[in-house]
């Protein structure tokens, strides 16, 4: 037999952590890919209407959203239960739509401005009176491309 020494008690070899940064970055990239940024917190209750003839909204960067619905639970005390408009993060009146549109337009590149689309996200139980006031205000603000947001419905 050869000279085999049992040289003392062996400890666990240290973990090789040289690839740890790679793992961390890979995980970080994964998280970045799967999360989507939501810029606006909904302050109104929005239950999407349903339809079958739907087209995907293109060029999301050229889309301005208008939310219409009854205020959520936490705002009911302050804003009441009547249907309200939400432009970006704030409650608003139809009269404020023109300024809002002008603001959004000016934050776009000049060649993109005529292609701005306004997406109306109105709760399905909204009355047409409100919708019409909004559309009228949009017409006066020269926001002529309007999209009605809806969820797919299987017939």
């Amino acid at each position: 037999m050869g000279k085999f020494n049992k040289a003392g008690g062996r400890e666990m070899p240290e973990l090789n952590t040289s690839s740890l940064p790679d793992l961390v970055f890979a995980f970080l990239f994964f998280i970045m890919m799967v999360t989507s940024m939501r810029e606006v917190t909904l302050k109104v209750v929005f239950r999407s209407p349903q339809a079958t003839e739907l087209q995907k909204l293109e060029k999301k960067s050229l889309v301005t959203f208008i939310y219409i619905g009854e205020p959520t639970q936490e705002f009911k005390a302050k804003m009441g239960t009547e249907t309200r408009l939400q432009l970006n993060d704030q409650f608003a009146e139809p009269g404020e739509i023109q300024d809002y549109i002008a603001q959004e337009k000016s934050s776009m590149k000049e060649e993109d401005q005529p292609f701005m689309t306004v997406s109306i996200k109105a709760d399905k139980e909204t009355k047409m009176g409100t919708i019409t006031d909004v559309k009228q205000a949009l017409r006066e603000a020269y926001a002529l491309k309007i999209s009605y947001s809806a969820a797919p419905r299987v017939n």
Binding site: A51, K124, E125, K127, Y148, A150
Partner: peptide, 23 residues
């Protein structure tokens, strides 16, 4: 033509059927 009190979902339903016809 709607009424001011018409529900938005009803309006969407009609617009949907018009769009379906053309499509």
């Amino acid at each position: 033509q709607n009424d001011r009190g018409t529900e938005y979902q009803a309006y969407i339903n009609v617009q949907n059927e018009l769009a379906a016809a053309y499509n």
